[in-house]
């Protein structure tokens, strides 16, 4: 389990105030979870992953993996593989060379999986990695990471660069690892769509803090849209007692976003004898937008 407790990360720039990349961030990621993180560039996703990988040390607060701090801790690091957005391979190396190195670093490295995945992805393990396209290098990095069989695997915007077929393949491997070895995975992405499909937990990062974190499945059911009309004039007060996030009314028809239990809400409104009542689900993006607005942010601003 990953536990981040009030983690703060600052970057010193001479002559200016330090740039706060993470601001008292706290979260808990249980074993076996596939955790998605979404946020604009500079929101702190990569910084967070680097802290988790032991590359950075927090300015304050603590980051532990299974109760062990990661910083300068080879025992912890040997169970973690971090695949950064900006990939680095040893100069003039091939996938095979890198595999050999990974084998030395991670005793759990599995050559069978490596060969199988290389085949499946149609990548030549003996070719110089410099000759690979950007997408192929991402695939190679993913293969190497997965073949290392780590307990914790972090993909920093790796998926954004893979085509859907590859993505599906990688996901399958991840799922198997979750089942077989309770692997914990963190995936960061720009695309909510992608995370929605793969992850079971989702967090939104903005300016160094998690402003929103939730179980993906719950998210979809946490909010819904209600459209209803009444014969007699009414105002919003009519719906006092309901947890309304956003309310618009045009004449006798009103539309609002509601948090709560759907059946109970339906019953409540029906009891008022509406002329019409529609309860509609929201897409994940819409859920996000309204949740953000409720928190005081504009989602568009956050993701742009």
């Amino acid at each position: 389990m990953i536990v981040a407790n009030e983690v703060t990360m600052k970057f010193y720039t001479p002559g200016k105030a330090p740039f706060v990349a993470l601001d008292s961030l706290s979260c808990q990621i249980p074993r076996g979870c596939i955790y998605g993180m979404i946020g604009a560039n500079g929101s702190g996703k990569s910084t967070f992953l680097r802290l988790l990988s032991g590359v950075y040390r927090p300015a304050s607060g603590s980051i532990t993996i299974d109760d062990m701090p990661v910083w300068d801790n080879p025992a912890a690091k040997s169970r973690i593989v971090y695949i950064p957005d900006d990939l680095y391979f040893l100069p003039q190396s091939s996938m095979k060379d890198m595999a050999r190195m990974y084998r030395a670093l991670y005793p759990s490295f599995n050559y069978d999986r490596f060969h199988k995945l290389s085949e499946t992805f149609k990548l030549d393990p003996t070719a110089n990695l410099n000759t690979f396209s950007k997408g192929m290098r991402r695939q190679a990095a993913a293969i190497l990471g997965l073949s290392s069989m780590p307990d914790y695997l972090f993909f920093d915007e790796t998926f954004d660069g893979l085509d859907p077929v590859m993505r599906g393949l990688v996901k399958q491997v991840i799922y198997r690892d979750v089942i077989e070895r309770n692997t914990t995975t963190i995936i960061t992405s720009h695309s909510l769509h992608e995370l929605e499909d793969t992850c079971d937990q989702l967090a939104l990062l903005h300016r160094g803090g998690i402003i929103f974190q939730s179980d993906v499945q719950d998210l979809k059911t946490s909010l819904f849209k209600v459209q209803t009309a009444f014969a007699s004039p009414f105002t919003k007060e009519k719906f006092e007692g309901l947890n309304i996030l956003s309310y618009t009314q045009m004449g006798s028809v009103c539309t609002f976003i509601l948090r709560g239990d759907r059946a109970a809400t339906e019953a409540h409104i029906r009891a008022m004898s509406p002329l019409l009542l529609d309860i509609l689900p929201l897409t994940l993006e819409e859920v996000f937008v309204y949740e953000m607005e409720a928190l005081g942010y504009s989602f568009k601003d956050i993701l742009m």
């Binding site: 399958q172 799922y175 979750v178 077989e180 079971d200």
Partner: peptide
């Protein structure tokens, strides 16, 4: 879990849920 996850391409945690 394994079979379902592979068949449906669904997060095993979701299936678990």
């Amino acid at each position: 879990l394994r079979e379902l996850s592979a068949m449906l391409s669904v997060n095993p945690n979701t299936i678990q849920k």
